[in-house]
Simulated scan of single mutants.
Amino acid sequence: MISKTRQFQNLLNGSDSFILPGAYDGMTARLIEEAGFEAIYATGAGISNAQLGWADVGLTTLTEIAQVVSWMADVTTIPLVVDADTGFGNAINMQRTVRILERAGAAAIQIEDQVMPKKCGHFNGKEVISSKEMIGKIQAALDARQDEDFAIIARTDALAVYGFDDAIERANAYKEAGAHALFVEAPTDIEQIAAIPKYLPDIPLILNLVEGGKTPLVSKEEAKAMGYQIVLCANTVLRGAIKGAAEALNVLHRDQSQANVHEHICSWETRQQLFKLHNIKKLEEMYSESSGKR
Rank of each mutant, 00 (worst) to 15 (best):
M94Y: 06
G244E: 08
A104M: 04
T215W: 06
E112R: 02
E269K: 11
Y162Q: 02
E169Q: 09
A225R: 14
G227I: 15
I168R: 00
G136I: 05
G44Q: 06
V218E: 13
G213D: 11
E185F: 03
E102F: 04
G14N: 15
I19N: 08
Y174W: 07
A248K: 02
I193F: 13
G26A: 05
Q256L: 14
V251P: 01
Q110Y: 03
D166Y: 01
E112S: 00
V82A: 03
S288M: 02
E222Q: 15
K119D: 10
L277C: 03
V57P: 08
D143M: 13
F150I: 10
C120N: 10
I230M: 14
A39T: 07
G36T: 14
D85I: 01
A241Y: 03
I230A: 11
Y162K: 06
Q7D: 14
L200M: 08
I129G: 02
N49S: 09
T5A: 15
S288F: 09
L274T: 09
E133N: 07
A154D: 01
E64V: 00
I92L: 07
S219G: 15
L209W: 07
L101S: 04
I280Q: 05
H122K: 12
Q272I: 04
C233K: 08
A194Y: 08
W54L: 08
F37A: 09
H180K: 13
F18Q: 11
A141S: 09
P117C: 09
F37K: 13
T156P: 03
D165R: 12
R96W: 00
E211I: 10
